[in-house]
Write a protein that binds this DNA or RNA. Sequence first.
DNA 1: TATTTTTAATTGACTGCTCAATCAATAAAA
DNA 2: TTTTATTGATTGAGCAGTCAATTAAAAATA
Lengths: 194, 194
Amino acid sequence: MPKRGMQPIRRHELVVAAVQAIHERGLNGVTMGDIAKRAGVSPALAHHYFGSKDELLSATMRHLLGEFALAARRRLAEAGDPRGRVDAILEACFAPEQFSPAVISAWLAFYMQSIHDTAAARLLAIYLKRLEANLRHDLRPLVGDGAPALARGIAAMIDGLWLHAALPTLHRSPGEALGILRDYVDGRLAVART
Amino acid sequence: MPKRGMQPIRRHELVVAAVQAIHERGLNGVTMGDIAKRAGVSPALAHHYFGSKDELLSATMRHLLGEFALAARRRLAEAGDPRGRVDAILEACFAPEQFSPAVISAWLAFYMQSIHDTAAARLLAIYLKRLEANLRHDLRPLVGDGAPALARGIAAMIDGLWLHAALPTLHRSPGEALGILRDYVDGRLAVART
DNA sequence: TATTTTTAATTGACTGCTCAATCAATAAAA
DNA sequence: TTTTATTGATTGAGCAGTCAATTAAAAATA
């Protein structure tokens, strides 16, 4: 069996498996066995490549952050005026790549983890600060001094819509979420113009 | 030691302790020992009064739901016109009683639990449906057909603001959250009037 | 009133299980 | 022969849940 150069492949497989496993069992409920089984390897191998459960989960979090940053950057590169750039960010948040139930669950699990885990909190804070800074920057020409508050509101609403999207009983669609967000932004822009 | 009639007192103490313990260790990280210690009793007693960890956590969730329902009802009873009633709901969400860090953490932990626990999901769905129904009812005279979408947006933003309030690194205040929410509602009302 | 009996509260000690982490052994590629 | 991939078996810790024993209040009885 031993083909060489497996390390990066296995690490990626395990991280992807971790996202799924977290979705089904929760961040604290998940075991190395769950993750390894889903990746088709033994629990011992997961330890071999990550050293500890903490490290695997931490790598999973960084993976999610990285994927999102990539998606956002791609969309922003193609956007034009400020309003278009704001929309690019919103779309990145609800694009199908980001928006699978498992990915949302895992994201939210890391949010919760950040409440009592300072390492996770640091990572998440960087992401949130950057998101808000981007929004603020593009909102400034649209709403002036109202930009900081609106950016915070949008960031909060994004996370709230994610939270609701993660609850199966509510069965909300990404399209609906985007509509609600756009209504919010448009409402505030209309007020700002008067 | 044995004073009689301890059951309701101990149950309440344990539920309150559970909220604190969940805040510090997370829903799945928390142990009966954590909770019992914080309540000043032995782990065995917690089992005696609740039968299982699941039952204790479930009772804790029902406690939070009940407390919020009470706060909302009180405020709604004193509210006047539709806009005032909407504001009463928003204020109930960010009132200090509801808004301690521990209480928010516990709320969010139950949200996460609902992703893979159908019993929790059922309870939470009832709460969310009722919240949205109340909002929709009072928004109808203000924005007509836009009421359902706006109600969903408000509900999502409330939860997003809670989520952000739970993250210590962001240090957001309840007052700021209320301001952002009111701006959102006012923006949509202004658009609806034109 | 004095006593015995019953009942509720409470805990320490124990059990069994799950799981993270370790390690020595095996297999194959280089 | 060396290096890398991989696993089965094992260890040790932590925790939910059980149970028998202890204490004291309350109720019943003498």
